[in-house]
Amino acid sequence: MKTKIKFIKPGILTTLQDYGRVSLQDIGISKGGAANPSLMEIGNALVENKDVWSFEFILSGPTIEILSSSTSISITGNVDFHLIRSGKKEIGSCYRTYILKEKDQIIINRTIDSVYGYISFSGNIDLDKVFKSLSCNPRSKIGPRDGQKIRENEIFEMSSSMTDQEFKLDRIPENKNKNKVRLLEGPQFHFFENKSVKRFFNTPYEITTTSDKMGMRLMGCKIENQLTANIKSEAIIKGAIQVPADGQPIILLTDHQTIGGYPKIAVVASADFENLIQLPPKSKIEFKKINLREAKISYMLKQETIKNIIKSKVKI
């Protein structure tokens, strides 16, 4: 028996995601995938999926109805949502599973002080992967259903889970110092004037409203370039901070372009990338420079924390 679900409301920008697709950047496709993969991973651990995939929503989420059969779901992130179970409306809690049956609904209102949230269903979705991934990128049209965002009344089918056990986590992810972002020197760090570099690390920058999953535009002290504002286009990576001629930095995010011709002052330490991408427009960020050794240690610590969170899963 398959579980069938319907998106009664699609939300602003809800997409299907997994860890993205690799080995294609040389033909113009970046890895993409979930903006906050740890939340997706935790959500999938809760619904006991081996193959990790989720629906990712942004700011205002979808309303989903279970059309047939039953399923176990979890919502991860900082999300305000309701459930309708057996006709009764209740407030939902993140980081736990719920068993939902036919006609039950998940009403996701919004993400709180954050951008991305995840809803995970137990089982596999009935869609063919594109280049070994379910991730959708509406802009480049890569992914199942041409990578498009979820549309109103769209229906998905998935293999049902037999479980009737609900789980919760004893530990949940915390975001301490989420506005402090650690950086490594970028490949063109020396292009920038000393005074500007100092200001870059000592004054806060504001995230502008023109930011999306491709890039985050910042506003703050102008960064003066002492060499040139154009370089021979070279590969872009997630977290690279480029500075165009106007001196206002742009951080390239998960769905970044594959190559780019602006000099890069810095790169976000991987340990802090997920914190950064969750900051809503108008948030202020402060940067701190660290070295490769520190970056590696903080990344390992972060991965360890995620593992421990997943290990804290208990039956309800």
Binding site: V22, S23, L24, Q25, D26, S30, K31, K232, S233, E234, A235, I237, T258, I259, S270, K296, Y299, M300, Q303
Partner: peptide, 20 residues
Amino acid sequence: ENITPSYNKLAIQFDLGKTD
């Protein structure tokens, strides 16, 4: 994860959880 050529450079991206 990705090896990306451009005019005069080649970038190699890796997964810090699997290699270094």
